[in-house]
Design a protein around this nucleic acid. Sequence first.
RNA 1: GCCGGGGUGGCGGAAUUGGCAGACGCUACGGACUUAAAAUCCGUUGGGACGAGGGUCUCGUGUGGGUUCAACUCCCAUCCCCGGCACCA
Length: 798
Amino acid sequence: MFLRRVLMYDFSKVEEKWQQYYSENHPFEVDLEDAQKPFYNLMMFPYPSASGLHIGNMYSFIGADVYGRFMRLKGYDVFEPIGFDAFGIHSENYALRVGRHPAELTPESIEYFREKQLKKIGAIYDWRSEVITSSPEYYKWTQWIFVKLFNAGLAEKRLSRVNWCPNCKTVLADEQVIEGKCERCDYSVTKKETSQWFFKITKYAERLLKNLEELDWTEITKSIQRSWIGKSSGATIKFAVENSSLELDVFTTRPDTIYGVTYLVVAPEFGGLDSIVKKDRVDEFRAFTQDVEKMDIATRTSIKREKRGIFTGSYARHPLTGERLEVWVADYVLAEYGTGAVMAVPAHDERDYDFARKYGLPIRKVIECEDSELPYTGYGKMINSGEHTGTQSEYFIDHVDEIHSSMKKAVTYHLHDWCVSRQRYWGPPIPVIYCPKCGTVPVPEEQLPVLLPETDDYIPDGSGKSPLARNEEFLHTACPECGGNAERETDVNDNFLDSAWYFLRYISPKNENVPFDQELAKKWLPVDMYIGGNEHANLHLMYARFITMALHDMGYLEFEEPFESFRGHGLIVNEGQKMSKSKGNMINPISYFKTHGVDCLRTYLMFMGSFLEGGDFRDSGMDAVRRFLNRVWEVANYPEGKSSDNLKAKMAWVIERVDYAVKNIKYNTGVAALMEFVNDAAKEEHIEKELVLDLARLVSLFAPFLAEEIHSLKGGRGTILDSGFPSGYEEYAKAGSIEIPVQINGRIRGKIEAERGISEEEIMKLVKEADKLSNYLAEGKIRKVVFVKDKILNIVVS
RNA sequence: GCCGGGGUGGCGGAAUUGGCAGACGCUACGGACUUAAAAUCCGUUGGGACGAGGGUCUCGUGUGGGUUCAACUCCCAUCCCCGGCACCA
């Protein structure tokens, strides 16, 4: 045993040196026009709302950057931009909380994020492409997109019962309501009827769903999108209402239970209800609907809550049997879904069953089952179904179009139109003008941007109107068409619109004439790899896809899907515990920059678990990675001299492992392979320069600064990423002997050392010569030999 | 309830997709160095049995079955955890 001198490297000095090198020499700027092998590597830009990037941001960015570095090392022109999602309710709420004006606070936050954090982490950003969504140069084009959507008939202002957060004092999209609570502040959301701008994303529901099949996205992300779109197939069935011109359309996924309908139910908010409520019941009906209205969404949609309803006094006719059916109003039917009315089949639907039992409504079995199974919701043989008795459910559903003129196949989606207006200050004003003569007029392109006024009067008042409505100077304007007095729309756009197209702006962030250069778009888009958290899998990705599709249909983009590949990564926990401010167990990345260094934090974040599934952060793991990096440095400083063939074979193996690990986003296994190599290399007395360089190249994905230092120590110039992905060890990988495990009757009984590529006959000969193994063979007759070349030998003996 | 992902040592996690389960790392223990500690280095570390010892045998990837020469991996059943959706008709 020989004692090795301890060689520690001064990470803070090394890191400072290369951070400075990166910021002075811009080695990662890409010539977008001339690049030969374009690769667009995208990560989710942060919103500069809090006191700095948190460890989750860091995790996400570094995971994406490792991929970008890998592609760069492979010789691609990797475009890795970054920016700031600086508008929106999170930034605004943060500003309100600390009592500063968002226009004043946001630039400060950005400055801090950029200079103190993002520029330190060793990412290969091209800072020339930075976009800030709150800058007029950017939101001019956000407004431009609004106008384009408006002109294409995809934006519409309509009266709607929308989600209202009494705390944030704004409307929320359905997507921002989580279990009846506001996504931002956790306050119980209520419904409020107001006039709002909507984007007609539902027009794209089928395409958004269908295209998922072709996308190279993590499965979990696709599944989240699918369930959000929520397609369901069935039929609409028309019921005529007695003594009324009203026809009730219901949507059902189970038209095969049509003979089991014993009453109809409509939602309390259903339009035209007044006409069917019998006069003697009007008061009772009013009281009931008002009561329902008052419920917050969490209560309304709670499954456990007992269903309530009242009979309207009207009857409808069953389209097939002519039977009279009571029409009820009940709080368990939602106006927003399907047609807002349902046919109740208590025997075969749990909700209808509960309701029918409570109010003594008839229950009629029409699908064969035991009485004890009611409500039976499975498919089966139709019974008590007139001429269709004996038909199978599935067959009836398939042929529903042929049964009766009142029944038609239909599809509904859970996806709702995207409510984009926000009654807040900190966002891009919606570029629309209301003229008493000309009506709703979009602001002409040449008048964009509609600047957000600089004002101290920006705090929301809960009136349901944006603070901008109080700004007389902003409010009053001239109609672009007739020049007469007109008023501006005072709501601002949802923050998700800002981020729905930022990846397009990155390729031409300074272009004043177009939102994005179409030639560059052809060359660089769609995005080759997008890595980010699954917490944005629903909203952000869906909206970005929608906007891209719409721009495609208008002829601005050749493709309709913005992100060819997407990888959603997991979350970090701290020592097995979820991080939260209230628990006080937040991990502060900056403090680790100081104690362990950026390289160490990067490498550890990638090593602590499977990136796609998230990981458990532990200080002891940080120390382990610091040891590893020190060993890399130590090995790099070994005297130069011939290395063993074994070590070169190991290098061949590591190269393959790292290649596989990065392509499959299994970074932890890549780091593990590098550790193995370093453990082996440390056992030798000296090392060849080329091996040191190749080690550094692979290490540079995770620990860039240390790698750059080693590269320059060994005489390299520029950034190590330009020196190419390691190769050239193939012959060592092929040479040498390997151990082949030998199984006898499925159990490992020994190992045979043999040349690579050995044949079955040869290895059997060696097995028979080996005492121990031949003893096992002697116990019986060889029935079968299974030999997988270079892998395993299994002999069946009986 | 439906849909997705998962369950592997004391712990974080590997196993390139049917081919040596537990790579790599942590922790713990033992040792070297040290006046001492830290740091560093070396060794041991899934359970059980046998052996003075090199070792040998055996059980083992939530649970119960199955397919196969061979199963963490595939099939059937079942339990649990995480995530998404959910009075969605």
